[in-house]
Nucleic acid binder design. Structure first.
Lengths: 155, 155
DNA sequence: ATAGCATTGGCATGATATGCCAAACTTTCG
DNA sequence: CGAAAGTTTGGCATATCATGCCAATGCTAT
């Protein structure tokens, strides 16, 4: 469900994606409104679910989550029961930040966050490959970060 | 550089990862402190860079960014010049949310966000594969989301 | 046991969010 | 073309909150 956002709405969203704690007064100044209508627009964007939530972004390296890896998973079978159980298992692991079912070469792709390569290896050996649905796992291990953005592109 | 976080610090970080706009008064109540020392801890966490920033999280589907795909990229050569140019190109594309250099099967992995499969295809054909460094691209297209988290695991 | 240090809690002040109302603008329909 | 209805805006008053300062408490080391 795409909402109809005008230029001011998109401007508000762009600013809030960069600074979610900007004061309404300052935000209003930036988008060229007075505080009242600006706050009203924000509330509407929140009620529509376009703004889902506000969060603090932590430095992964400084909280012991310095390594991001992408894992591709193959299932033993592709039936609903297997994918359901896999989803339940994956949701219990805080290391798994994202998990999607795919069609094509592999059955699922995961973005996993751990402290370092050693703790990733332990996670894969002790937990990921022990989920009954899992046949095999292939991992791409990043050596360097070229880009990391938190801002969705707004057309 | 890992900092030494006590239980209260981790509690604060956990709450702020879920609600980055909670008032200091309420946060203090939740972690069992009075507002003053709570705010002081927050400021220290910010100054240490452990809290990197605060952002608004948007609903991707509602702002025309409903499709997340993972792409694996192979370079023509692996020299520094090629990876440098690739990084520059990738940073200019707002659709590319994350990009890491890898060692092993492929040379880089990307998390790319677009409106739908059609606009992803256009992005890949018109932009990604036209970066001079790129030899080939393989894409895993998610059909369903099993998990999507914004909270780093805090041990 | 005691001195030094870090952390806490309370208070005062200035800034901000928020709800309400009137005015301006836009759209719709006669 | 004009009038009326609806939408959006700006300003104001009030309650809440952030923030800086200082004394008191708890902890550590000698």
């Amino acid at each position: 469900m795409l909402a109809t956002l005008d230029a001011i709405d998109r401007h508000i969203l762009r600013v809030l994606q960069r600074d979610g704690r900007i004061s309404n007064v300052e935000l209003a100044k930036e988008v060229g409104l007075s505080p009242s209508p600006c706050l009203r627009r924000i509330r509407l964007l929140e009620e529509a679910g376009i703004i889902d939530r506000y969060v603090a972004v932590l430095d992964p390296a400084k909280v012991g989550a310095g390594l991001t890896v992408f894992a591709r998973v193959w299932f033993k079978t592709q039936d609903a029961e297997v994918t359901l159980r896999f989803g339940e298992a994956v949701r219990r692991f805080p290391e798994v930040m994202e998990c999607y079912l795919t069609t094509g070469e592999c059955d699922a792709v995961l973005r996993i966050v751990t402290a370092d390569l050693h703790s990733y290896w332990r996670f894969q050996a002790d937990h990921l490959t022990r989920i009954p649905s899992v046949l095999s796992v292939k991992t791409d291990v990043p050596m360097e970060t070229l880009k990391r953005s938190y801002e969705l592109p707004l057309r």
